[in-house]
Design a protein around this nucleic acid. Structure first.
Lengths: 330, 330
DNA sequence: GTGAAAGCGCTAACAC
DNA sequence: GTGTTAGCGCTTTCAC
């Protein structure tokens, strides 16, 4: 910038003002300096600018991974969510810092804020860390979590209406004539727990008694899902419908069922969750509960920016929608 | 930091040195200052540090999207690649800035470097911008591209051996007894073009004559792929094998074929490309050419860091491997 | 309308 | 071993 000032024959302050389009500057000097900057491929050093302005238009998007499986980022749903976040942030003039951390080291997430690398944080995945998250909120770190709204929560979450989603899916299966609807997924995780609540509510509303044996508490690990299905088939368990906690899980279940000689949807009807792009092109096309990905990215960013603007952490519950395709019968 | 110095009763330089574990400092003062920093939740401001050190441990990963389809980021392969990059960068102590830009505005990619936000760039996707990329290289911007090595290229690329991959896939189909192997994908894109070359080479080596009509130059757009398949079936085209330019494309082709009443692999054998996680659990499990994703992230980062260290742009060609599953017959 | 100068939070000579 | 000081590239008050 000093160089540019010398070339233009003005002071650095004039250059600074010209480049920031200050109204104080003579329009023609302003234009001349802009031209010079272009010609010499000069752009303002954002680091120095941030230091001086004590601002920081950078948001860290942090993906905690399960230390055992490292599984998380392989799910297309989360990956799409990241794409959606990238767009939402770019649109609002923020940069996106992407980091993966061990889910058990959430304190590392705070680090990126303490060091001033990012002015706020989007956490993609809540896992079991409700208490740690509350602690971070108490430290007044601006952040939002993609996940479920929980009792006694002092931080902001954005998520789809999991309970309603689970209810919709299960009610649909019952309406299709299902006699016994299994739930696949680990209810210990907050979001999955709420989908499980929805499943239970729909069964109860229909006068059924949800049995503990109807819950297959499997994690998002392909091999475990396959095992669970194979065991059920081997035991000749009497079930004719499954509500799976994610599309990826549903797809694995379908493949395994068919390998075991069962037909979908003739023998077993199935509904997934997420509505990832592949769901529509799977065979059979997957009935699923859609989570609005674009809206999710926007809602997360809006909630965070509001906090950065001084507002208290505000959560959002996004609407879910049942997308009926062929895997649940017709 | 000044505050910390006051609390500790020393000067800022002592604090600075202590926190950077300088050997000049008395071990016990060092420890005392570390403890104080922890207690007061102080961490060094990276922005100021970078400004002073004129270093910047941040790498921008830029995903150009096709302005029409915005399709790119939806492919699980690219998303996994991003995950792999995040890991490789984190491991080497770099932050990752993720940005999506219009593929036609590659100059915006240079911006993030000019402004000092990132010290180097990883471009995920080469598209048709060979010349623009050469221009950026001439401007001495440190960057690597995930893509194909092309003639007259002055920038670094990292990619799998697409020609060999295409050859492997096609030779395998021929060995399985295929009479006519179609190629699905747009050979106008560098990487796809090389896969196409491999397809052609394998056919020629087997004494076949690759016909222009055997190339279905479809983009990565679901509807277009479906149309192409439907047209072939409607025309009663005589083909019994397909090599698809990506797994996602292969899956769409399989679904469409089956909707049209054709069986895979009995009527049509198919091989995909990438080996995304879902390929193994698809029905039928997909035979495919594996691109080594973890190695890819590492190779991209290594190439970039070498440039940052002053080396000339160096490209890498990663080995591909045919993974035989059931979609190609047995 | 433009310039001089102070200072954002840090590091590294250079002194002692 | 520790302190003093200059300066990284920028913005902005205050003077003119």
């Amino acid at each position: 910038m000093a160089d540019l000032a010398r070339i233009a024959g003005v002071s650095v302050s004039t250059v600074s003002r010209a480049l920031s389009d200050s109204p104080l500057i003579n329009p023609e000097t302003r234009e001349r300096i802009h031209a010079l900057a272009r010609e010499h491929h000069y752009s303002i050093n954002v680091g120095a600018q941030n230091l001086r302005l004590k601002q920081n238009r950078t948001v860290a998007v942090i993906v905690p991974y399960d230390p055992e499986t490292r599984q998380h980022l392989s799910d297309p749903f989360f990956l799409s969510l990241i794409g959606s976040l990238a767009d939402a942030l770019t649109e609002r003039g923020h940069d996106m810092l992407l980091t993966r951390i061990d889910a058990d080291r959430l304190d590392l997430a705070a680090q990126v804020w303490h060091t001033g690398r990012a002015s706020g944080i989007v956490l993609v995945g809540q896992w079991h860390h409700h208490d740690q998250l509350n602690a971070l909120a108490d430290a007044r770190m601006p952040f939002v979590v993609w996940g479920a709204r929980l009792r006694g929560q002092r931080y902001a979450t954005v998520g789809s209406d999991n309970t309603e989603g689970g209810r919709l899916a299960t009610a649909h299966l019952l309406a299709q004539g299902a006699r016994r609807v299994l739930f696949f997924g680990d209810p210990g995780l907050p979001e999955i727990g709420q989908r499980h609540d929805g499943w239970r509510a729909a069964l109860t509303a229909a006068g059924r008694r949800p049995a503990a044996a109807d819950v297959q508490a499997v994690p998002f690990v392909t091999a475990r899902i396959e095992q669970a299905v194979e065991r059920l088939v081997a035991e000749r368990a009497a079930f004719d419908a499954i509500f799976a906690a994610s599309d990826l899980m549903a797809m694995t279940i379908v493949s395994t069922l068919r390998r075991c000689g069962l037909r979908v949807p003739e023998d077993v009807r199935i509904v997934g969750y997420d509505d990832i792009a592949l769901a529509a092109h799977f065979l059979p096309p997957l009935t699923t509960v859609r989570q609005p990905i674009e809206a999710a990215g926007v809602a997360l960013v809006e909630s965070l920016l509001a906090q950065l603007g001084g507002a208290a952490p505000a959560s959002a519950l996004l609407p879910t929608e049942l997308v009926v395709r062929q895997s649940s019968g017709r």
